[in-house]
């Protein structure tokens, strides 16, 4: 494992901690898209089917379990928690995420590394993760104002993707064998989706002002 991959995993972990902190400290999930959170839960559940078949390292196994557990916990909180669920912006979180699931599944059936149950679900999870942030970005754009923790959550999530790209570039030059093109192409698409958000995030940071997205 190289430093970029580790930094990517850590910023991913931080983004989840920031989100949990926001929900726990403010007892509110305003500004957070339940659609995106449900998609992430589905992404981790379908990607980590290999928990039962392949062992990579203790680190990998623990991280997989953390990602599955935290994404399920967040969905549970937003749907079931008596107080938290009241702050959910249901009216503006209307992105039809089922289409993303359908499109990702069709693409996975057509484009995969190997025609096996596990490989098709792995490809599905990669495609779905690339698109999963869309409901969240649309919700932020609709609500206009972005609170601090929500802004940081999306920022760390984007940083995680950027580090993964650096990781692939590094691996490309240090390892002879390179066969992760599905993950790389999807990862580039995924990171590109954050470009707009990053732009406004850095402007607000530079001006020391509250993050606002144009309507």
């Amino acid at each position: 494992m190289n430093i970029f991959r580790f930094a990517g995993d850590m910023t991913h972990l931080i983004s989840i901690l920031v989100l949990l902190l926001k929900i726990y400290a403010t007892k509110s999930c305003s500004g957070i898209s339940l659609k995106t959170q449900e998609l992430y839960a589905l992404v981790f559940l379908t990607r980590y089917l290999d928990l039962f078949t392949d062992f990579i390292s203790v680190y990998n196994t623990i991280m997989k379990l953390v990602f599955i557990a935290s994404s399920l916990a967040i969905v549970w909180c937003m749907r079931m928690h008596r107080v938290v669920r009241r702050s959910y912006d249901k009216e503006i979180d209307t992105f039809r995420h089922y289409f993303l699931i359908l499109a990702s599944f069709l693409l996975a059936v057509l484009v995969h590394e190997k025609f096996t149950f596990q490989e098709i679900f792995w490809a599905f999870s990669i495609y779905l993760e690339a698109l999963a942030i869309l409901p969240q970005l649309v919700l932020l754009q609709r609500s206009g104002n972005v609170d601090n923790l929500t802004g940081q959550y999306v920022f760390f999530l984007g940083a995680y993707r950027a580090f993964y790209i650096l990781n692939w570039i590094y691996r490309y030059f240090t390892e002879q064998h390179f066969s992760r093109w599905i993950a790389c192409l999807s990862g580039i698409v995924q990171t590109a989706l954050y470009a707009d958000f990053f732009y406004y995030y850095f402007i607000s940071w530079k001006n020391n002002a509250k993050l606002q997205l144009p309507a």
Binding site: R5, I56, N60, M63, K64, F67, E113, W122, Y164, A183
Partner: peptide
């Protein structure tokens, strides 16, 4: 040979 390897990234 394109033997699929286990996915070592998260």
């Amino acid at each position: 040979n394109v033997e699929s390897e286990p996915h070592d990234e998260l």
